[in-house]
């Protein structure tokens, strides 16, 4: 039986509209970043045009702050991924392999963390961060991003470690490995998909976050999304042009879009595993 025959006309229309609605706005931003000003402002939307890099050149010349933001975002994202993995890999191992004496049960407390609205934390964190100077250092954001991602990450890693048969590890023990060596040599190579899944989730959050960046940074540690938002409101005041904003938006979205598309199967099934385990 041809499965496509069961699609009604209405189903096809809904699917087509949904795809168009999801993709066209993104393509408009990317395409417009290569348009000349007069093509962006023309009364009739211009679909075919001669691509130019003018907007990127102008962005580079007039918005050094955006480049600073991209650099800060990159550092903060990589730092968050590293911190999340450093904290979660040992914990996930213990939750999976040493769950007795209350260790296994303790993780349910982490679910509550995920439910706390992030904005609530900024009220007390802001005075602390500004008095210690953490808002003027990229370490501050790394700490916050990692803290909000550990609960999901540890659950994802635990499910991947659970899936490694115990016999594999026992064989390593018989060969004279201790727990750490067995973990590094036997388990780590088998849970790479889990580590990548975690990296994607952390990267999506840290690279894209706006709110913490807005509140917990200074002009030296500002992140790319915050500068982009500034540029957008600068259009009305004449300090930025739509072309520059599109170029900045494209640069901000491309890394994560490319990363997510390359490994989308990972993300999809990783999310599935994380979701079923809470």
């Amino acid at each position: 039986m041809d499965s496509r025959s069961s699609m009604t006309l209405l189903d096809r229309i809904v699917l087509a509209v949904a795809i168009a609605l999801a993709v066209i706005p993104i393509l408009v931003v990317i395409a417009s970043s290569f348009k000349e000003g007069r093509d962006i402002f023309s009364y009739r939307p211009v679909i075919f045009f001669w691509p130019t890099l003018d907007n990127y050149a102008s962005l580079g010349m007039r918005w050094g702050k955006f480049q600073l933001g991209l650099g800060n975002s990159a550092v903060v994202t990589l730092g968050s991924i590293a911190l999340v993995l450093a904290v979660c890999l040992p914990a996930a191992y213990a939750l999976s392999r040493l769950p007795r004496h209350g260790v296994g049960r303790s993780s349910s407390a982490l679910l509550i963390i995920k439910m706390l609205p992030p904005l609530v934390v900024t009220v007390p964190l802001f005075p602390i961060f500004s008095s210690v100077g953490l808002d003027n250092s990229r370490v501050g954001l790394i700490l916050v991003y990692a803290a909000f991602e550990v609960s999901l990450s540890v659950m994802i890693l635990k499910t991947f470690i659970d899936a490694v048969p115990l016999e594999v590890e026992e064989a390593a023990f018989l060969d004279g490995c201790d727990r750490l060596q067995a973990f590094l040599r036997v388990i780590m190579p088998l849970i790479w998909p889990g580590i990548i899944t975690v990296a994607i989730f952390v990267a999506l959050f840290a690279w894209n976050d706006y709110m913490f960046g807005l509140i917990l940074t200074t002009s030296r540690t500002v992140t790319a999304p915050v500068v982009l938002a500034d540029m957008l409101s600068g259009i009305g005041e004449g300090t930025a042009t739509w072309g520059e904003v599109f170029a900045a938006a494209t640069l901000q979205m491309i890394p994560v879009l490319a990363f997510a598309w390359i490994v989308q199967r990972q993300m999809f099934f990783g999310a599935l595993r994380g979701a079923t385990k809470g």
Binding site: I19, L228, M253, A260
Partner: peptide, 20 residues
């Protein structure tokens, strides 16, 4: 992949896109 692409957009990019 097309349908879930908006997940990769930051709030700042979403605002840029719809603002325009």
């Amino acid at each position: 992949a097309c349908l879930i692409a908006p997940i990769a957009m930051s709030h700042a990019v979403t605002a840029t896109m719809w603002g325009y």
